[in-house]
Structures are given as structure tokens and as C-alpha cells.
């Protein structure tokens, strides 16, 4: 029951290869850090693993993912820019319940206030939106979470609070985590294994 990317390659158009024959495995409950310089393909790798794009070579094996990619995906990706990951015309309550209905306990542990639910995305800050995106991605069928620079825009205290909650849920429910980040301190603090990319 592991998330496995085998011999993955990607390049944009006819440009240089970002990575070739790259293999990665994430076990349930494991917290893996992925560190590398800007533009080396970390986000692209995350998108391949989450099934947003099809790798040019190799394959991504996920237990429980439908062949035609329908239904709730066991691998959820949290984007670097939350304001682009929510429909600007939907109130937060609708956005939060798109895949499942998070309970109040989870909302509270992520610091999501009830009054935010009736607001539109442009009435919330980036950090507030990101917490909603995290709550949305922590559905009961989520087995792997790919956090792409998830807390880069937050202050240290909020960052600690959010990671505390996410790590707690990951360990309780045995969710495998891939932490994509520039922040060496964060990765060395929370990850059980660190991969250097690029």
C-alpha cells in the first residue's frame, strides 16, 4: 500500500529534461522531505505523483486510484498558491465540503473560524485560504498528501500550528506525506527522510 513513482521523466516541450528515470516511494505514515533549488522540477514531480499530469515515461502506482482517474483520489495535492485552488465565486462553506464534510474538530485544530465559511475567497487572506485547502484535502479516503510549499506564505507560529495538526492527522491515520520545500530547517525538523532533488 505504498505510493510509488517508477522511472519517471518529464520535460516541457522540447526543453531540457527536468528529471529522467526518477523513482520515488512513499510508505503510509512516512514523512518524506523533497528539497531542491527553484525550477528543478519539484512541483512537476508532485503533480505527476498526484495524477495532474501523465509522466512522459514510467508510471505512478497508487493503491485505490481508479484507472480513468474518476472518484476521490487517494493522493491529494496542496498547492503553493491557495487563491488559485479555490473557485472565486464559491463561498468557503461550499469549497470546504466539495469532496467531503470536515468536522468542526478538524476545522478548529486548523484554526478555521466559523465566520470564514460564509465569506468569498477574496475576503480571506492567503494563510486563511490555505488552511481551508488543507481541511478540504484531508478527506477520509486520503492516503497520501503532497504538500507543495504549503506553509511558505505563513508566519512561523501559524506554520507550526498547521504542521502540528497535519502531522497529527498523518500519524493517526497513517497518511504518507511528501513535503516539497525550500526550507531546510522545516524539512529537517518534521521529516523522517529527506530527498535532495535536482
Amino acid at each position: 500500500m505504498q505510493l510509488e513513482g517508477r522511472a519517471l521523466s518529464w520535460r516541457y516541450g522540447n526543453g531540457p529534461w527536468l528529471f529522467q528515470n526518477y523513482s520515488i516511494t512513499i510508505q503510509p505514515g512516512e514523512v518524506v522531505g523533497l528539497i531542491g533549488p527553484s525550477g528543478c522540477g519539484k512541483t512537476t514531480l508532485g503533480r505527476l505523483l498526484a495524477g495532474y499530469s501523465k509522466p512522459l515515461t514510467g508510471e505512478v502506482k497508487v493503491p485505490g486510484r481508479a484507472r480513468n482517474h474518476t472518484g476521490y483520489d487517494p493522493v491529494q495535492l496542496i498547492f503553493q498558491h491557495p487563491e488559485r485552488a479555490v473557485n472565486p465565486r464559491w463561498r468557503m462553506a461550499k469549497t470546504l465540503t466539495e469532496g467531503w464534510s470536515p468536522d468542526t474538530e478538524l476545522l478548529e485544530s486548523l484554526g478555521i473560524k466559523e465566520e470564514w465559511l460564509q465569506r468569498y475567497p477574496n475576503e480571506l487572506s492567503g494563510g486563511e485560504l490555505q488552511r481551508c485547502c488543507i481541511a478540504r484535502a484531508l478527506g477520509p479516503n486520503t492516503q497520501f498528501l503532497i504538500a507543495d510549499e504549503m506553509t511558505t506564505m505563513l508566519d512561523a507560529v501559524t506554520q507550526a500550528q498547521i504542521w502540528h495538526t497535519v502531522l497529527h492527522h498523518a500519524s493517526v491515520r497513517q497518511i504518507g506525506l511528501l513535503v516539497i520545500s525550500h526550507d531546510h530547517a522545516l524539512v529537517s525538523r518534521i521529516c523522517t527522510r529527506t530527498l535532495t532533488f535536482g
Partner: peptide, 8 residues
């Protein structure tokens, strides 16, 4: 894209 992954 997220909506697709959330099963819509």
C-alpha cells in the same frame, strides 16, 4: 483540477 481529484 482539484475538483476532479476530489471526485466531482
Amino acid at each position: 483540477l482539484v475538483a476532479r481529484k476530489l471526485g466531482s
